[in-house]
Amino acid sequence: MVMAKTVILGAGYGGMATAVALEKSHQPFTIINKHEYHYFTTLLHEPAGGRNQFENYSVPLRDVLHRAESEILVASVNALRPQENKVVTDSGEVDYEYLVIALGNAPEYFGIPGMQDNALVLRSLDTARQVHEHIENTFKSWQEDHDDTRLRILVGGAGLTGIELCGELAEWMPELAADYNLPLEKIELINLEAAPSILPMLDEGLREEARRVLESKGVQLRTGTAITKVNPNQVELKTGETIDAKTIIWTGGVRANPLIKEAGFEVDPKGRAKVNEFCQSVDYENVFVIGDSAWFTGEDGKPLPPTGQAAEQMGSLVADNLIALQNGGSMQAFHFNNRGTLASLGAEVGVGSVKGIPAKGVSAALLKEATKVKYLWHLGGLRMLSEKRGQFKRKG
């Protein structure tokens, strides 16, 4: 049985922020992750939509965590046993004194029949690759039967992920048409959203600008259009309409990893474990929960939404609190610093706001690129920035 004082579950934005901060303070830990790499979750729409090569969007864990006392265990977490201070993985059990749960999320299907079985999702590097390859292979096959449903892509959900994916796909379609001698005028990219508007986290003016840009790129935005059922190669809508398509992608929401609820933690309706102001589980004082796994109530009284910046900030704070606990110090409360939201609408334009200041067009796209640079710096300093920053430009 492996013994570890501090165990971190997951190497997403939150888990990596904790690990990097602990390593800088020379604190030993074990990080358990399904893959031997960390990938940039908030950028998955880029390689899925053909902007760049997939290998540019991940970093080997050992390239970030260098110290010998920083143990990396590549394994899948199968169960949490907080009553016993154990984590069960497919490589065996791991004991801990302190646990940081940063397991990320799972798709939220809202009980829509057939959605899980018949739609692609965008939640990992592997699923992004599946989306990309599926579209490419489906379009390529059009020459065999001239079935126009092969050239129709449905994207469910008009939040950040769905809209950014549509922006990337819209720019990729002309390339695919040229590569496989396809009729560009027959390619359809349709976004379906049950809510009355897209990008609900942005103000109305920015939403309208995003709509204008996407529609100018050929995206059909259908708001107020709920999907009620998904069949193989077909969606049924609340209006009674059906739409046939060989590519159906769901980006309509996320919930916490089901292992948290199964372990008996107090959870909210999305399965997130309730935490106190220190990001500490209300059920177990030696367990911290961050990112998409955490039910944290913000200063406005509302649960903090699942974002990369929230996970990263939580991870850094938890590292400080772990160090304080082990040294007899006082923990600090978490206060989310909302830096804003930026949505790319392709490689060169975007919309969003930074610290309450709206941005659109090229300036928003440049700000989005700046967030990538900032994250690379936080993750691995100058060396990481030098290696990665030039790899996010559109290929070609």
Rank of each mutant, 00 (worst) to 15 (best):
D63T: 15
L22P: 06
Q116D: 12
N56V: 00
Y39P: 02
P113G: 03
S25M: 12
V77M: 11
T42K: 05
R81Y: 15
P82Q: 06
Y98D: 02
E46R: 08
A75H: 08
G49I: 01
A102V: 00
N56W: 01
I31G: 07
Y96C: 04
V77N: 09
E36S: 14
N78H: 11
N52W: 08
A11G: 09
L65V: 14
Q116F: 05
E23L: 06
P107M: 09
L103A: 05
E36A: 11
L120M: 14
T30M: 14
N78C: 13
P60C: 02
A48F: 04
P28E: 01
L22R: 00
E93P: 03
D95W: 01
R51I: 02
D63Q: 14
E93D: 12
V74W: 03
V64N: 04
R67W: 09
L73I: 15
G10I: 09
A68V: 11
I31L: 14
Y109N: 15
A17F: 12
I72P: 02
E108D: 14
A48T: 00
T18K: 00
E108G: 08
T18F: 08
F29T: 00
S58P: 02
E84D: 14
P47M: 10
M115V: 08
S58L: 03
S91H: 14
